[in-house]
C-alpha cells in the first residue's frame, strides 16, 4: 500500500474525530441559533434592542452563579447550595442595613461597606464549610452541598422570620438595580465575573490544575497536584460567586426574603451543562457557560414573547435540560471513542 492511500482515510478519520470531539461545543451553539431564529420569526417584539438588554439583565444573576458552578463542575463535583447561599448572603446584607420602621426585623444596621464585607465573609464561610466537609471529612459534594443548601435556607429563615426587607447598601443598590446609560450595571458586573473566570481557567496555572483534576483526578494526584486543595478552592470560589449574585440579586428584585432564589439552582446548573461543560469534569469552560446562559435566557424570554401557557413553559425548560444532558453524555462517549479508535489505527 502506498503512502497516499494510507494517509487519506486516516485524515478523514481525523477530521470526523475532530467533528465528534467538537460536538459538545457545536450542539449548544446550534441550539442557540435555532432558538433565536424561531423566536424572531414568531414574535416581532423579540428582536428589539430593549429586549436584548432585557435578556442580558435576566441572565446576569444566573451568570454570576454559573461562573462558580463552572469551576465546580469542571472538577467533576457539584454544588447544590449555590442558590441557597445567594439567598442567605442577600439577606445578610439587608439584615445589616437600616430598614424602614415598618419592616419588623430586629436587624443590626451597619455602614454599607461593613454590610458588604460581612456578606462576603459569610460567602467565604459557606465555601470553607463545604470545602472542609468534602476534603477533610470526605463527604461527597452532592450530599455536603445538599446539607449546606438546608443550612443556608435556615439562616435566611432565622434572619428575616417571614418578613421582607427592602433596603440594601447604596453601592449594592446601584450595581444591582442601576444602569450606566442604557446598560444595566449588573450586566457589566456579570460580564466582568465571566471574563475573570475565563482568564483564570484558561491562562493561569490554577486553572490548568482545575482541568487536570477534573479530567483525571488519579493522574493529577500522581502528577503531584494537591487535588484536595484545588477542590477546596473551587468550592470557596463557587460560594463567593453565589454570595455576589445574592447581593446584586436582592437589589435587582428590590427585596430580600426567604425562598426568592428558588429557580436559580436549576437555572445555573442548566446553563453550565446546556453550554456543554462535561458533568464528568475536565471538559468545557466559561465560553460554554456563556452559550448555555444565552440558550436559557433566550428560551425563557422568548417563551414570554410568544405568550405560551406559563405552565407549559416549565415543562419545556425541563425537556431542554434533558436534551442537553443527553447530548452531554453522548458527546463524552463519542469523544472517548474517537480517541480510542485513533489510538488503535
Amino acid at each position: 500500500m502506498t503512502d497516499s492511500t494510507a494517509v487519506a482515510p486516516a485524515r478523514r478519520a481525523a477530521a470526523s474525530g475532530w467533528l465528534q470531539a467538537q460536538l459538545r461545543n457545536i450542539a449548544p451553539f446550534a441550539t442557540l441559533i435555532v432558538l433565536v431564529a424561531l423566536f424572531s420569526a414568531l414574535s416581532p417584539s423579540f428582536t428589539t434592542f430593549d429586549n436584548f438588554t432585557n435578556i442580558l439583565s435576566q441572565i446576569s444573576v444566573t451568570g454570576i452563579i454559573a461562573v462558580g458552578l463552572t469551576f465546580v463542575i469542571l472538577c467533576a463535583e457539584i454544588d447544590l447550595s449555590v442558590a441557597s447561599v445567594a439567598n442567605a448572603v442577600g439577606i445578610v446584607i439587608a439584615y445589616f442595613t437600616l430598614q424602614d420602621p415598618s419592616v419588623n426585623i430586629h436587624n443590626v444596621p451597619l455602614p454599607g461597606a461593613a454590610a458588604i464585607v460581612l456578606g462576603l465573609v459569610v460567602s467565604v464561610l459557606f465555601g470553607c464549610a463545604t470545602a472542609i466537609g468534602m476534603t477533610v471529612i470526605g463527604i461527597p459534594s452532592f450530599i455536603m452541598t445538599l446539607a449546606m443548601l438546608q443550612i443556608g435556607a435556615g439562616i435566611c429563615a432565622m434572619l428575616v422570620r417571614g418578613q421582607i426587607a427592602y433596603n440594601v447598601p447604596s453601592l449594592i443598590h446601584t450595581l444591582g438595580a442601576g444602569s450606566i446609560g442604557p446598560v444595566p450595571w449588573i450586566v457589566i458586573i456579570a460580564a466582568l465575573v465571566l471574563l475573570i473566570g475565563h482568564i483564570v481557567l484558561t491562562y493561569t496555572r490554577f486553572g490548568r490544575y482545575i482541568y487536570m483534576t477534573g479530567g483525571n483526578r488519579e493522574a493529577a494526584e500522581y502528577s503531584g497536584i494537591n487535588t484536595k486543595a484545588i477542590i477546596a478552592s473551587v468550592m470557596v470560589i463557587a460560594a463567593v460567586c453565589s454570595g455576589l449574585a445574592g447581593m446584586l440579586g436582592v437589589a435587582r428584585f428590590g427585596s430580600a426574603q426567604q425562598d426568592e432564589f428558588g429557580d436559580f439552582l436549576l437555572d445555573s446548573i442548566s446553563a453550565v451543562v446546556v453550554g456543554g461543560t462535561s458533568l464528568f469534569g475536565g471538559q468545557g469552560g466559561i465560553g460554554n457557560t456563556i452559550v448555555g446562559l444565552f440558550v436559557l435566557g433566550v428560551l425563557n424570554n422568548g417563551l414570554d414573547h410568544i405568550r405560551i401557557d406559563s405552565f407549559l413553559k416549565i415543562l419545556i425548560r425541563g425537556l431542554i435540560l434533558l436534551l442537553a444532558l443527553i447530548v452531554n453524555v453522548y458527546a463524552q462517549r463519542m469523544r472517548t471513542r474517537a480517541a480510542t479508535t485513533a489510538a488503535a489505527s
Binding site: G215, N216, T336, A339
Partner: peptide, 17 residues
C-alpha cells in the same frame, strides 16, 4: 493510564509535573 490525561494534548501531559 492512571497518570495520563487522555483528553488533553501531549504537551500538557508532559508539562503538568
Amino acid at each position: 493510564r492512571d497518570m495520563l490525561f487522555h483528553m488533553e494534548p501531549v504537551f500538557k501531559n508532559v508539562s503538568i509535573s
